[in-house]
Design a protein around this nucleic acid. Structure first.
Lengths: 109, 109
DNA sequence: GGCATACTGAACCGATCGGTTCACTATCGT
DNA sequence: ACGATAGTGAACCGATCGGTTCAGTATGCC
């Protein structure tokens, strides 16, 4: 079983897919429009979109023969949450600095 | 060329590697200790550690034949930063709610 | 010295990945 | 009805991935 966080992280760990999300952050777009800037076949982009879709990061709406893609960033929340559990570790230096000053101004016994 | 963000996201998109980071969040440990809970050979775990190391998420210190691993969460900051650029999108409902009230109290022309 | 411990490198394996080509289905515009 | 446009499914390809086995190197302990 692969968790949702897994799906999202895997989807997002590819630079092409992050670029697609970036494009969609500027507003909805058709697959062809999204694909245009890439030196890649439409089929290739389609597969990336599919992965993003399965991760819940992209919503698709069909209008006739066109597929409008829309960003759905909510699953990134899980990523933010996971990362945030490590926040205290990259603030460790700051903690030490604070400790340093705390020690300096400590009242001697 | 693969960016740092890429390296970190790829490293972190594997559940085994996230579990290793989780273990290391509880304090430094030897590779063997980290490996113990996994149904996997030591060699397998070694390879995962290597990937985490290359992403800068783990620091290694040799003491004789032992390798002490230490969490180095700072690169996760880049992930947090990247995700944060999408924060406004998962708050979109709130935005719409605000817009709704803004419209309500709008001064008619 | 001799044996156990703690890794590591290399070779290998099947599965998955990113990407392509090609053939196909719908749909749109004229 | 026609050809152009938008997208998809399937088959294929080389590369990478997660994992193994096995042999080897240090190092620690008695």
């Amino acid at each position: 079983m692969v968790s949702r966080l897994d799906q999202v992280l895997v989807a997002v760990s590819d630079p092409t897919r992050r670029a697609i999300l970036g494009r969609l952050a500027g507003g909805p777009a058709r697959i062809s429009d999204v694909a245009a800037p890439f030196a890649m076949t439409l089929t290739g982009v389609c597969k990336h979109v599919r992965i993003l879709e399965r991760a819940g990061l992209v919503k698709r709406k069909r209008h006739g023969r066109e597929n409008t893609l829309e960003l759905s960033a909510e699953p990134l929340r899980a990523v933010a949450q996971w990362v945030s559990t490590y926040e205290r570790f990259w603030n460790v230096r700051l903690d030490r600095l604070e400790q340093f000053f705390a020690d300096k101004h400590e009242v001697p016994p």
